[in-house]
Design a protein around this nucleic acid. Structure first.
Lengths: 346, 346
DNA sequence: CTGAAAGCGCTTACAG
DNA sequence: CTGAAAGCGCTTACAG
């Protein structure tokens, strides 16, 4: 009742009184077959509606032209863009993409890794979950001889290829920009510090303060404010300080920055005059809020392409244990109204 | 230099002086093996860091527990959400997802289909591209015995399982709502009419007019306005009519509606007092524009789940040619400020 | 240029 | 409960 039998190279061979090996050669179309028989074979293949069985071919060849990707969430702009970029390049190369989402769960991330190892994918690209505990599953990837590329959220306990945003530099630029706009007390909304990206963004903030001889005020730093709601809550707390901030850098995300903006608006604070706001990621909506939100573009589609290109360029080196390379993507500060309070525009 | 050899069931068998078949049985853990040997086998499997080779297993079993999805773009909220929903369910079932994007190109869509057929995926789910020409590639899927589910953008030339939004109903509700708010001349921004979804939305618009005895005014219907720029351009044309519209239904997308809003704002028109605006899709940004934009939520994550569930529920029927089922998701009108101009709220 | 054979790593009737 | 064998559909040295 299930699946009628599909045409195989044997069916073609039988019909033409040839050996299956000839058929295989003609179809892979790079070996020695006479032009005459090749044409015959291609014609009957079309006639019988032949489609290669990749499972068999891959098993025999020992690899499957597939890149596995693991992301916390597929449906977040940043990751969706990365995947789109990845897909673009892998498609050009005739590779496929298998996608898994960890849902920010460590256990699920491990399961995804195992599935991809079982599938003998050619490469695994991963951005680790917020819940990350240790790197044993990542080591397992390497132990099975599969090239591993970490991107964006990475662990440094493991020496792998990496594609990163220069979060520290971008944060530093953002905060410096706010300082140049005359803001005096700049608060930081930070994300989970077990993720490298959030540590780096904090580092950038600290460096910018230092560079401009600004004091570090601990009460202006709020942990774990990486959703709109948490951003709003932190803002309420910050604004009720005896000496409230005159600017807030939502280093976690634009969603957090949106929470800041909403609270500020509700309290009747003028943005950017009384409160400056800067987000992170350049989500589409930052352009259309009132005022529009200053943020940082991460070039996520390019990042996806960079990951794929790294694989295809380094594929030969990846196996022989040469020192893994790190590609850094430079994010760009997008200055908009929410931080522009004096005339001398940047 | 490439890939060190991986542990196979033979390695385990050899080490334990057993036959590979016993190892296979123990590992698939549902056949007859004594508890003692099973434990032994599991232990050595762990010790040797064994991971099954899915390629071999799938080849032998003739299927690969993978669902292939083809969408126009991965990084559009609607599709990203669908994929996230799909992934959620397939993950629970131990299935994998292979994702392809057609980039709205017909040729590329064909290539994606062929790749998925070659891979012997268990099911193909597709939302066709704007460039769609004919259904021969989709027929080819069925000819290869692979269950096919069309979703959202579908062709009716082929009798397949379908998961659809009730676009007509939703559009009708949206336009009726605007009529009830007292708008008299409601313009329509329509999308490419070769796609079913845009035909249905137009149909809903026409039905609503008819139901309320509103005349159909051809000059108020603008073709091909499915980006922000095209929406803006159409709006400029509409507003310079001798008798301009007092409401615009951007049936193509919220991006188009955003274009409408921007032009209206620039011209100093008050929304919703002087111009009502309704979009489509409930993109996150519609909530935070000023005014917020009335739109239609498509429950895209649920739609993704529905696709996967349809496959898992109907998997047995799909092969024996029973009449394909159609699942309809009811979208919901989200009324916001951009169309609310009188007090009696809905 | 073509054929015959082995093998990729599993699973699954078939015996015992 | 365990073993021996065949086979999933390809590809690729090896002969000729």
């Amino acid at each position: 009742m299930k699946k009628q039998k599909r045409t195989t190279i044997y069916d073609i061979a039988k019909k033409l009184n040839l050996n299956a090996s000839s058929v295989s050669r003609a179809l892979s179309n790079n070996s020695n077959v006479s032009e005459a028989t090749r044409q015959l074979i291609l014609a009957t293949a079309k006639e019988l509606n032949y489609q290669q069985n990749s499972m068999a071919s891959n098993l025999r060849k020992g690899q499957n032209q597939t890149i596995g990707v693991i992301v916390p969430h597929i449906n977040q702009n940043f990751f969706a863009d990365i995947i789109a970029g990845l897909e673009e390049v892998t498609y050009q190369k005739g590779y496929n993409l298998v996608i898994c989402q960890s849902n920010e769960s460590y256990l699920r991330e491990i399961k995804c890794v195992n599935t991809l190892i079982n599938q003998h994918v050619s490469c695994i690209a991963i951005s680790i979950c917020a819940d990350f505990e240790d790197d044993s599953h990542l080591r397992n990837i390497k132990e099975h001889g599969i090239p591993l590329i970490q991107f964006d959220r990475v662990t440094d306990t493991l020496d792998t290829f990496k594609v990163l945003n220069d979060n520290e530099q971008a944060s530093m630029e953002a905060v410096s920009h706010m300082i140049e706009q005359g803001y005096k007390r700049i608060a930081l909304l930070e994300g989970p510090q077990n993720l490298n990206i959030f540590r780096q963004r904090k580092e950038g903030y600290l460096k910018a303060l230092k560079k401009h001889n600004y004091p570090l005020v601990p009460e202006l730093i709020k942990e774990n404010a990486w959703t709109k709601e948490l951003g709003a809550e932190s803002t309420r707390q910050l604004l009720s300080l005896p000496e409230p901030p005159d600017a807030i850098f939502a280093s976690t995300s634009d969603f957090s920055a949106l929470g800041v903006l909403e609270v500020a608006t509700k309290k009747g604070l003028k943005v950017p005059e009384e409160l400056g706001i800067c987000g992170y990621s350049n989500e589409p909506f930052t352009e259309i809020t009132s005022p529009s939100i200053t943020t940082i573009d991460q070039y996520s589609v390019s990042m996806g392409k960079a990951i794929a290109n790294l694989y295809f360029q380094e594929i030969d080196f990846m196996d022989n244990g040469s020192h893994p390379q790190t590609v850094s993507i430079k994010p760009q500060l997008i200055v908009r109204s929410s931080t522009l309070r004096n005339k001398n525009r940047v």
